[in-house]
Design a protein around this nucleic acid. Structure first.
Lengths: 214, 214
DNA sequence: TGTACATCAGTGAACGCGCGTTCACTGATGTAC
DNA sequence: TGTACATCAGTGAACGCGCGTTCACTGATGTAC
């Protein structure tokens, strides 16, 4: 009992590597052409360099691999938001810097973002629903964050959700554009500028809101 | 030569019907579960009740059927916009009524909108690109429309595009929500209310824009 | 330290199946004269 | 009006292929004692 509990250590390491390799192969193949729905189990194992039956050592079927990719992709996205929350200090350049960080991050993790974008409306119901649940969660988290800003302190939860929904839709639009142009540099500069303007336009409307009633 | 030019009339009628039936079967099957990428040619002909080879009498391959569905779906969308343009009289209730029309129309043509939403990020590159081209076109048309409003007369083309992009992203978000809830009635009322608020928030920001410079 | 046993990721053959595509055909309809 | 010919949507058999899944296996590693 005093001995280290590293049961099947090496065996588990190998297992973890293959498991991860299967996930990565799926993302890679989806980046090359397919939707998740169009991927085959054999295609994925071929990419990894293992025999098809090995797949079943790690996942019961394709859907369970897909759900794991959803979780993995949202972990990536949440890391971005965590950093954004810590570094975002309200001020002149806050929006600009947030958008820059966002675009750079999407480029750096394009396969995760592409997976989410593609499967949000995609062909596998369980995956689609999981993604939607997570997006809704994200939206209310953003709403909570927004509620801390002085101008928004008096807003109802519903209205805060409405604004955060608008912002998230704008951001999804940005993701689409980042994903559809493979080039970096100049393309991104323009994208960043547009996204910044869109967010600023939304924010300009905010102080006018209540005075107009609803 | 004086005779009516109805060459192969009945033959062509039959052909048109089957062609249309193939398109509709594809939409129906996509509504049931799959992404376009996951559909098979045989599945579609089975649904129509013809032999697989008949498919080739009408389309060279699946991709060409897909591209025809893109065209068909955008024809549907453009009809909505045409009506919207003719009936939209600026005023108190304009936004509300536009959003109501929009949601009702999306419900009535859910399979077309679902196809576009799904394949916009989908697995077939040619289809994805065709959809993006059309969306971009739509965006600049809306920008032109917006430019006719007094408040926006002095805006640059780039900024008008920025606003229309924001609005289109908000509308795509609405489409997603309409598609993901099969119920009508109360759900839609709430959706309509949120969409109306989002558009109104964007519009509230507009008069503030220039005074802030950029 | 040495040995017998348990675990389990990865193997490789085999299965039945639905797939896309080819081919020569059929038969209804339209056209020419 | 009648007949010979052209067109062409739909047929049905056949092909080779990649698919998901099963099964009994191997062999590396860890555990018990």
């Amino acid at each position: 009992m005093g001995r280290p509990q590293k049961t099947h250590r090496a065996s588990k390491d190998r297992s973890l590597n293959t498991r991860q390799a299967l996930r990565e192969a799926a993302l890679e193949l989806m980046d090359r052409d397919n939707s998740f729905d169009g991927l085959s189990l054999r295609e994925i194992t071929r990419e990894v360099g293992v025999v098809p039956t090995t797949f079943y050592r790690h996942f019961s079927d394709m859907e369970s691999l897909g759900l794991e990719l959803v979780a993995e992709s949202f972990r990536t996205l949440r890391e971005l938001l965590k950093v954004a929350r810590q570094t975002a200090v309200p001020g002149e350049k806050m929006i600009r810097r947030s958008v820059e960080t966002f675009v750079t991050y999407v480029r750096a993790h394009r396969r995760h973002f592409q997976f989410l974008a593609r499967e949000r409306f995609g062909g596998v119901a369980a995956i689609r629903e999981e993604i939607r649940t997570e997006v809704r969660l994200l939206q209310s988290e953003l709403a909570t964050d927004l509620g801390r800003f002085p101008v928004l302190k008096t807003w109802s939860t519903e209205d805060l959700n409405m604004v955060s929904g608008l912002m998230i839709n704008a951001m999804i639009g940005i993701v689409e554009q980042v994903l559809s142009s493979r080039r970096r540099g100049q393309d991104d500069d323009e994208l960043i500028m547009i996204a910044e303007k869109q967010l600023r336009l939304i924010i300009l409307g905010v102080p006018q809101w209540r005075s107009q009633g609803d």
